[in-house]
Amino acid sequence: MSCPNLKEQWTEYAAGDLSGDERTALDAHAAGCEPCRRERDACLRLEGLLRGRLSMPRPGRSLSDQVVSRLRADRRPRLVRWAAAMAAASLLLSLTALRLAERAPTASPPSPVTLHVAPSTPLPPPSCFEQVLSPPGGRRSALGFRMTEWVRRPPAPADASRVCVAAEPAPSSRSVSAAILDSGSKSSDPDRASTLLVIALD
């Protein structure tokens, strides 16, 4: 058994927590004390075993690809689902509005109509967003609508649960553009949205 008053110090010695002078003094003591020498060696052996056990490399396939795949799998379908649903709603509203306009007894072209699907939100300033590169011709939603995706420049919002929609038909055509603010905040503040999906209904 090592000297009782030194027992704890051998733990610190092996962990490298002592100064050079303290180590030298302990080594000098151990040179003439067999029990302390055994305790020192046992503590050093424990330290070596711990390093070997806790810092051993972890073989196996990288998680990076798996995580990125999961992120894409989780994100795209949700956007596409919302895009399809919101685009369908926007299309229905715009067609109704245009039909009403065509029935109006006037010789002049239909006046611009603006439709807002609650909660109404204006489009965010373009400078806040970066467009995600799309294939030539753009992406198409499940219903065939052209979609352009934008992502907010940092910082992104903390919460991501609310979807806000603004639908606004162009004045001179039968097309409607809809903005879906996905990953928006619990408020309807579009400035806090991190992803913007713009859909053009040709």
Binding site: L63, V68, S194
Partner: peptide
């Protein structure tokens, strides 16, 4: 990553996953 760049986040994963 905050801007939605999954590749950038993948780089963070690769760096810290060990």
């Amino acid at each position: 990553s905050r801007a939605g760049d999954a590749e950038a986040f993948g780089a963070l994963v690769a760096r810290h996953e060990p």
